[in-house]
């Protein structure tokens, strides 16, 4: 599984960090998403998918 994020779409809602802080963080400066793990291990696959579906700005893609 591969996670990608699009900072230009992100509106800094923090939903991804709330869902899995091991995978996502937010920049101190403008609150946009920072990806911590591009290839999540099996234990984080479900939360990665959940974060992608919760993101209000469709800024997270799973492939």
């Amino acid at each position: 599984m591969r996670i990608s994020v699009d900072q230009s779409k992100c509106c800094g809602s923090g939903m991804c960090v709330l869902t899995d802080p091991d995978l996502f963080d937010q920049s101190e400066e403008d609150g946009t998403v920072v990806l911590l793990q591009e290839h999540p291990d099996a234990a984080h696959e479900a939360t990665a998918k959940e974060a992608a579906s919760l993101c209000p700005a469709s800024a997270i893609t799973i492939s």
Partner: peptide, 11 residues
Amino acid sequence: RKMLQGQFTVR
């Protein structure tokens, strides 16, 4: 919104 987002992060 971007001017404020950094002040409302989860952290």
